[in-house]
């Protein structure tokens, strides 16, 4: 084999660096949508590489639902300090207090859907014209048709039937006043690629991804973390289990899996053997077959 080729991870990395530099060149005020999850951490790491030796020229934007894992917030603050970047926080609690949204009630209530309003408000307040996200096309079927450069109208909505054609690696970020873009530099990565990359680059991630002992409750075929936000139903009990999380959303909706993968290497091996998709433990996707598509149309991540 010729020595002039990149292995698949290096090729995906090069593609992402190219995309991030296009964002910097084509937009005025970009932000990285930072959830504290592994995908947004990888995107932030890639941004660091794309502009080295300069600092990351983007703000980190975090939508704080008030239902975060405490570990996520601590991780976010440490990273912001290390990188010397600006942080913008949108608070779902404030949106509720201001009457912009109404808290869900009922047995599966979560703040997941409420985030969209807070996100769009925060984008408007800060005048971000582009938000860079860690979304991947392999995550969910509605995401399989997402572009690298995804246009949002002035209401922040995604129109899947009227997307701009995206050819070669020529990206069209042209937009009118008030419209914005979502850009997904790791569109072509799979869960496996992300873990292999985290392992290869030795990227720091929240300890939640690594197997640890925790108080959990068995509900809807998954181990939900016990927290102040969880009300026990009849027959449910709090147990201590060795678990890890494959995705990190709100503490109220993110289920863990029993695991003894306590190192990155073991996680890569576990992902390779997994028989369930990573979002299989996310209550937000289980609501209906088109749950993700519906949220995306409204302006979700």
């Amino acid at each position: 084999m010729s020595k002039y080729f990149l292995n698949h991870i290096k090729e995906l990395e090069a593609e992402a660096l190219f995309v991030l530099r296009e964002v910097f060149a084509q937009f005025e005020n970009p932000a990285i949508l930072f959830s504290g999850g592994k995908d947004s951490i990888v995107v932030t790491h890639l941004a660091r590489k794309a502009f080295f030796p300069a600092k990351i020229p983007f703000t980190l934007l975090h939508v704080d639902t008030g239902h975060n894992f405490p570990e996520t917030i601590a991780f976010r603050d440490a990273l912001v300090k290390e990188l010397g970047v600006k942080l913008a926080v949108g608070s779902v609690q404030e949106s509720i207090d201001q009457g912009r949204v109404v808290e869900e009630r009922g047995k599966n209530a979560s703040r997941n859907a409420l985030q969209t309003v807070t996100l769009l408000d925060t984008i408007e307040e800060n005048k971000f014209d582009v938000c860079i996200g860690g979304g991947r096309r392999d995550e969910e079927k509605a995401r399989a048709k997402e572009r690298f450069f995804s246009h949002r109208d002035e209401f922040g909505q995604w129109d899947p039937k009227n997307q701009r054609s995206e050819l070669w690696n020529i990206f069209n970020g042209k937009h009118h006043q008030g419209e914005h873009f979502r850009v997904f530099p790791i569109s072509n990565w799979t869960e496996m690629d992300v873990w292999q990359y985290i392992d290869m680059e030795n990227i720091a991630i929240p300890s939640l991804y690594i197997a640890h002992e925790r108080e959990v409750v068995w509900r809807d075929n998954t181990w939900l973390p016990f927290s102040d936000f969880l009300t026990l139903r009849s027959g449910e009990k709090v147990e201590r289990k060795q678990v890890r999380f494959r995705t990190l959303g709100d503490i109220t909706i993110t289920g863990g899996v029993e695991s003894d993968a306590d190192s990155l290497e073991k996680i890569v091996a576990e992902v390779a053997a997994a028989r369930q998709t990573e979002r299989g433990n996310r209550a937000d996707d289980k609501r209906s077959e088109t749950a993700m598509e519906d949220r995306k149309r409204d302006g979700y991540f």
């Binding site: 096309r137 392999d138 399989a144 048709k145 899947p160 039937k161 569109s187 072509n188 799979t190």
Partner: peptide
């Protein structure tokens, strides 16, 4: 539309 799929 164009949909992207991944396998390894």
């Amino acid at each position: 539309d164009v949909a992207y799929r991944y396998f390894a």
